[in-house]
Design a protein around this nucleic acid. Sequence first.
DNA 1: ATATCGATCGGCT
DNA 2: GCCGATCGATATT
Length: 178
Amino acid sequence: MKRKSNRQLLWGVIVETEAYCQSEPGCHGFHKRTKRNETLFGEPGRLYVYLTYGKYHCVNIVTYKSGWANGVLLRAIAIPNEHERIAAGPGLLANRFGLNRSHDNLLVSIENGIWVCKGKSANNMNKIIQTTRIGISKAKSLRWRWYMKSSRSVSKRAKGDRCPSVLQSWQPRLEEGL
DNA sequence: ATATCGATCGGCT
DNA sequence: GCCGATCGATATT
């Protein structure tokens, strides 16, 4: 994911996500449309940002089509040349990228200063673990959480998964032309 | 009108 | 591993 604000470019590798679908009770859109979750029911490709536990924000990207409350929660991002835990969790991620309720419903695009593109990490050399979602009390059996096994920036590892002692397999590199 | 509950995190045991 | 912070949304009276 990349973010450009005040002429500063901040980017990192999305290393952990969770999926939420209107048809399951873990989703904010499961019950009904409200002022808070309105964006989740809207156009795909937009940010759904909400306040959780009174102090943290969670950033989602709306998926599927309008009328369906489906989205992907961005849980962790590994940022080159920064502390590996700086965005190792939904609240930390939102904080580091400066995203809050004011960014709710923002279209993910270069023009808006926040976008996602495919990088070198997206190859089959990076093993992806699929497991159950974190911090929810409903629909706990759904295995709709994915994270990069080799990354030390994942919020929390699944039982039995070991964090590698070596650094991430991806190499920090500065990009040109942005 | 009042009570309960979080898609979390940091501190403490 | 457990607990409290903190407040908006939702449920209950």
